[in-house]
């Protein structure tokens, strides 16, 4: 049972990052390699406010707002000129942006990890004098991830905005012919994606055992990226499920396999998954139209 809780606690973070990548990939066919760094940067912006006396929730809200803004700005300024260019251009630009954000963060806030004080205890719950590997903080982590995932899912599935977002991704030209302001929606998609990543970054920065540093998201990003790939890149549900799967497998390997193996877990899962279903576990589309 312990493994399950620990696995899920980490898995939701991978799932969030994967979801964030999928939103952007589906709408703009761009792999946002700077996604983790953008989340890190927004989390720093929120965290600096705590030194001005703001409480955790206010800092969280500011980080989210910064995430929205950074996502929108990135799409407008960096990404928009890339849409009609070969894929390599976007890879170079996004990796460059990743480096830029990380060095800027190091210059502004130094590389020493900082922790954002959260109102949640990290002490495990006890039940009939047995400890469960679940703390109030872990619960907060899981719930906030689930809230964001549900919110994103609900926006896509049930709202007019979501319908237009999906149309803009599936058939941009048809959407335009129906009066959909596709450019604005793409900006909004980036904002939403960026904010989802920020939730992961804020959770990581308030977890006492890790804290926030300029490169902290790199490792999480790799796992999130692999989760997105396993999920088939197109599928938000696939991304989330694959994220959880990676968290669980990693935890089980850590506890039952020879030491050191667990860090290879995502790669092992990816290789196995791609051997079974090369198009990704949850992908249904054969070819992209965008």
């Amino acid at each position: 049972m312990s493994d399950v809780f620990l696995g899920i606690t980490n898995g939701v973070l991978y799932g969030l990052i994967a979801l964030s990548l999928v939103i952007v990939w589906r709408s703009t066919s761009i792999l946002n390699f700077a996604q983790g760094a953008m989340a890190m940067f927004a989390a720093y912006l929120g965290m600096t406010m705590s030194s001005h006396g703001l409480n955790f929730w206010a800092c969280f809200a500011i980080a989210l707002a910064a995430g929205f803004a950074l996502g929108g700005l990135t799409e407008r300024v960096l990404v928009r000129p890339l849409y009609k260019r070969p894929e390599i251009n976007s890879i170079v630009v996004m990796v460059g942006f990743l480096g830029l954000l990380e060095s800027a963060a190091a210059a502004i806030w130094s590389t020493a990890p900082r922790t954002l004080e959260s109102p949640f205890s990290q002490i495990y719950f006890e039940h009939h004098s047995t400890t469960i590997s679940l703390s109030p903080f872990a619960l907060f982590q899981i719930i906030s991830a689930l809230v964001i995932m549900t919110a994103v899912g609900a926006i896509f599935r049930y709202t007019n905005l979501g319908l237009q977002l999906r149309a803009a991704a599936l058939a941009p030209e048809v959407a335009r012919l129906l009066g959909v302001r596709v450019n604005r929606l793409l900006t909004f998609g980036w904002m939403l994606s960026s904010a989802a990543g920020v939730v992961a970054a804020v959770v990581i920065s308030s977890s006492g055992s890790i804290g926030l540093s300029p490169t902290i998201m790199d490792g999480f990003f790799v796992y999130g990226f692999i989760a997105a790939a396993i999920g088939g890149l197109e599928s938000p549900v696939g991304a989330v499920v694959a994220g959880l799967l990676i968290g669980l497998v990693q935890q089980f390997l850590q506890d039952y396999a020879p030491s050191g193996i667990s860090s290879f877990a995502p790669v092992i899962i990816l290789v196995v998954a791609l051997m079974i279903r090369p198009q990704g576990l949850f992908s249904t589309t054969k070819a992209r139209r965008v």
């Binding site: 319908l163 030209e173 129906l178 009066g179």
Partner: peptide
């Protein structure tokens, strides 16, 4: 404009296609 090849969004239901048309 009903484009060449019709441009219905195959992944959408009939209702979703129509709703999309009405929004703007």
């Amino acid at each position: 404009h009903v484009p060449e090849g019709r441009g219905v969004i195959a992944e959408f239901t009939v209702l979703e296609n129509l709703r999309l048309g009405s929004l703007a």
